[in-house]
Simulated assay, not measured.
Amino acid sequence: MTITNEDDLDSLREIGRIVANTMQAMAKAMEPGMTTRELDGIGRELLEREGAISAPESTYDFPGATCISVNEEIAHGIPGDRVIATGDLVNIDVSASRNGTFADTGATFRLGPVRPSLDRLCRDGKRAMRIGIAQVGHDRPLAGIGNAIGRFASEHGYTLIRNLASHGIGRALHEEPGEIATWPTRGDKRRMHKGLVLTVEPFLSTGGIWATGGADDWTLYSQPPAPVVQYEHTVVATDRGAIVVTLPG
């Protein structure tokens, strides 16, 4: 999607606010002993209250309103009977549409105290996303996002999952310009243009390189096995950098 007027931007900000508020409310509601299905139910209720439609459900017939991935699950976790426990890393990914406009956000949350190395990974995962967002702007290279995140990861001893990418969004959950690497690449000569809507969502890890599928055809796991965190915003490229639209309010 390319934003061409204030009405488009207002619509994007509104669905961005909805998905951000939903994710934050789900995170605040997490408690030991809760199942991921119960947590997803909270998200579904909040989306429906706002007149929003779950994007993974409507686009891909995903079996849940939101994606909830716990510990070894790194993305696209199906809400179900899994019980969340103290010390878990829980990734909540909320994407939805309203009146034909889509937004997508995600974050990894700690449930209670976690090991210092995981605490640091979460903090650095947020930093990696912010570094990627800082590369967004009119006429800047799309590859600059992944190259900057890659430098940060390398300098701090991390790896990046290399087959889960950022993407265009707005009129659909995934749209032009297609996949956008959040790891270093060569040969991608594409450039951003004013008004371009995209996500920035690096998957930072302490050793993982690839996302591989499991038995349920949805949930993804790190290969080689290692902790992974993901943080994601939907942004708009402008002459002055990025506008982040997935902010609570």
Rank of each mutant, 00 (worst) to 15 (best):
R186D: 13
I209G: 00
V200P: 09
L46F: 01
L198V: 12
E176K: 04
R186P: 00
N91V: 06
G150K: 08
R191W: 08
V83N: 01
T234V: 00
H167F: 15
G125D: 14
G132T: 11
I3E: 04
P225L: 09
H174V: 15
F102Q: 13
I78A: 07
T212I: 15
I42W: 05
Q230F: 04
R13H: 05
G195A: 04
C122Y: 02
G207M: 07
T105C: 15
D40L: 01
A96V: 06
D7M: 08
E201H: 13
V94Y: 03
F203N: 11
T2G: 05
D119N: 11
V235I: 13
P141C: 13
I161A: 10
S58T: 10
E73F: 07
E179I: 01
R110G: 00
D239M: 02
R140D: 09
V94N: 11
D216I: 08
I180W: 09
S222P: 13
I84R: 02
V94Q: 05
G241N: 06
T234H: 13
R140N: 14
P32E: 02
G249N: 11
T185G: 07
C122M: 12
T219N: 12
P141W: 11
I78T: 01
N5F: 06
Y60Q: 07
C122Q: 05
I18E: 05
G187S: 03
T101F: 14
G178A: 10
R13T: 02
I145N: 09
Q223E: 14
P32Y: 03
E176N: 00
T35N: 01
G77W: 11
W218V: 10
A107G: 12
R240T: 00
P202S: 10
T2A: 07
L173C: 03
A181W: 09
V244M: 04
G168P: 03
L247Y: 05
T36D: 12
A85Q: 07
H156Q: 14
A103T: 07
V197E: 06
R240V: 04
E38Q: 15
T108F: 14
I3H: 06
A143Q: 12
